[in-house]
Nucleic acid binder design. Structure first.
Length: 576
DNA sequence: GCCGTTTTCGGCCCGACTGTTTTCAGTCG
């Protein structure tokens, strides 16, 4: 059992205990332990072997024993006990905005509601308003909340599906007879959410049956959904559909293009093929033989089109004219400009984050802990900030050649002011401005609020600009034309927040920003060393937004970035 | 359940908003 799974189990125990009504500090202890496990560098089994689980902050005697049990037995008796007390989908209720553990428990105990479907029915029938502690408004809020949750019904975040895809592909590639194997569909195009996972493999036709037999026995698979000569569809334990399609090596390139899609992209290619009279039947790109996609595009007189931009939004014309951008890659990223530490709600020290960043091949990070108003995250008072900046200097001195920027993720207050006074703001290299409160301001107030914050020359980056959380919180109401215009004018950077549930700025707005000459920064918002790896998801969004290296601030090398910052500062003085 | 230069008990990030109440519980960030 890996660390992630242990963290998941601890988290589920916490949630179920919370619904059950256990002591909230006990619940928090499990929550904290889950977070702590997520921030551990090496495998927990090493800690267990050395009897060192209790050296992890937040893990004491009790939880260490629970973790030991998980690692040795592959499960948790406590979790099973708790699960037995509630319907299997009970936790899904808490995903609805406005519903927490208390209300979820009451809905279950009072009305026997155990899943979203039952919740929706009860709310529609007006049964919830009659429950003690609930009312008409709560019922309406629940119905609105269900809409947010079900907007992505049946779809999973890319952050969940991509690791699953990689795991399955790794297993498939080891099966005898499999020559090549690649994911297709929206996973390969790196869309932010994915409805099902499609994989394609090249093999000799005589091996098809055996490959499907082996694959259907893989550990992640729980049942066979359907099976044909060259295609098998299976379900994972979580009821997620995985489909494997087998083709002969010579068809692989064309099939990969067809099934990567998007449908609109593939149809448009087909149209091009038809017009050019390419393919043996003259009407199908599937007729162009070749093992690689490049052959297909080349046969159509085009440069290769990266999967992320295959949405029929100008890429086909661009490829025909050989004018596609060279999309940014993870290797282009030279540093991370949004990092939290244990000074606020991060799990690791400044030095640990620096070491982890160096291991990523980075030249710099910006330590950007929360500002004073965000009490829940332990936002730094000016005094604590001084201590933090002193430590940044000390760590910086120990790692010459690595640059640590002094930054902060400063709350943009409801009136648009930044959450530190002049005296304090002077001490930053730059700040990230983010909204963490008063999410439901109307569009004019919210837009003015953001524009006001952007006026401050120290605000370099607008953090997670839309504020959305995929599947749980809608976007802020913002006049984007105004905000983008101001960003272009004042050289404000828009963040692509790489957390899989944020991916904010999104792909479409990235492209819009690029057109307006606005740069983005691909940041992870890491709260532990294990979050740094999320940068690849941010890069995926940037690629979907057609961004090349020059559009991304943190592809600059350290010195180049310093110069750019200095130049921006001069530029802003000239604006006044 | 965890933690301790206030250590074996008694705290535990906190403040605001919302909707339900008629003084507050629950949720959120």
């Amino acid at each position: 059992m890996d660390n992630t799974r242990v963290a998941e189990i601890l988290g589920e125990i916490a949630e179920l205990m919370d619904i059950k009504g256990e002591n909230s500090f006990k619940v928090r202890a499990y929550e904290k332990a889950a977070k702590a496990v997520g921030a551990v560098a090496g495998p927990l089994s090493d800690y267990l072997e050395q009897d060192a689980l209790e050296t992890i902050p937040g893990i004491g005697k009790g939880i260490a024993a629970r973790i030991g049990e998980m690692l040795e037995d592959g499960g948790s008796a406590l979790l099973e006990e708790l699960r037995d007390e509630f319907p299997p989908q009970i936790l899904s209720l808490m995903k609805v905005p406005g519903l927490g553990p208390r209300k979820a428990a009451q809905l279950y105990r009072g009305l026997g509601i155990g899943n979203i479907q039952e919740l929706k029915e009860a709310a529609s029938l007006g049964r919830i308003a009659s429950l003690k502690g609930f009312g008409k408004k709560t019922e309406e809020k629940i119905l609105r909340g269900i809409d947010i949750v079900s907007a992505y019904a049946g779809r999973l975040p890319l952050g969940v599906v991509l690791p699953l895809a990689r795991d399955i592909i790794n297993k498939l590639s080891k099966i005898k007879g499999v020559i090549k194997v690649v994911e297709t569909g929206s996973v390969r195009r790196r869309k932010e959410t994915v409805g099902d996972l499609e994989i394609i493999a090249a093999a000799g036709a005589h091996d098809f049956g055996g490959i499907m037999d082996s694959f259907s026995q893989a550990a992640v698979i729980s049942e066979i959904h359907s099976r044909e000569r060259n295609r098998i569809r299976l379900k994972t334990a979580d009821n997620f559909l995985v489909s494997l399609r087998l083709v002969e090596p010579d068809q692989f390139g064309a099939a990969l293009v067809r099934f990567t899609g998007s449908k609109e992209h593939a149809d448009s290619l087909q149209e091009t093929a038809k017009n050019k009279g390419i393919g043996t039947l003259g009407n199908s790109i599937l007729d162009i033989p070749g093992g690689e996609e490049e052959i297909i595009y080349s046969a159509l007189g085009m440069e290769y089109i990266p999967p992320e931009i295959r949405e029929n939004k100008g890429e086909i014309t661009g490829a025909a004219e050989h004018k596609l951008p060279i999309l940014v890659t993870p290797e282009d990223i030279k540093g991370d400009l949004h990092i939290h530490t244990n000074y606020t709600d991060g799990m690791n020290t400044i030095e640990e984050m620096v070491k982890a960043a160096i291991a990523c091949g980075y030249e710099y990070i910006a330590v950007s802990d929360h500002s004073q108003s965000l009490k829940v995250a332990g936002g730094l008072s000016p005094e604590r900030l001084k201590a933090q900046q002193k430590e940044i200097d000390e760590v910086g001195a120990a790692y010459p050649g690595f640059r640590i920027f002094k930054a902060a993720e400063v709350d943009i207050l409801p009136d648009g002011k930044l959450d530190y006074d002049e005296e304090t703001l002077k001490n930053f290299d730059f700040v990230i401005g983010s909204i963490h409160s008063y999410f439901n301001q109307d569009i004019d107030t919210m837009t003015k609020r953001i524009l006001c914050a952007m006026e401050d020359p120290r605000l370099l980056i607008l953090g997670h600009p839309s504020g959305r959380l995929i599947g749980s919180r809608n976007e802020l109401k913002i006049n984007w034309d105004e905000v983008l215009k101001a960003a272009a004018k004042r050289r404000v950077i828009l963040e692509i927040n790489s957390f899989p549930e944020r991916l904010d700025l999104n792909d479409e707005r990235c492209r819009k920003a690029k057109e307006m000459g606005i740069k983005v920064s691909i940041n992870t918002d890491s709260h532990s060393i294990n979050h740094l790896k999320f940068v690849e998801y941010g890069v995926m969004v940037a690629r979907r937004g057609w961004l090349d290296k020059k559009d991304v601030l943190n592809t600059m090398k350290s010195k180049e970035l310093e110069n750019w910052l200095a130049e921006r500062s001069e530029f802003l003085k000239g604006l006044k």
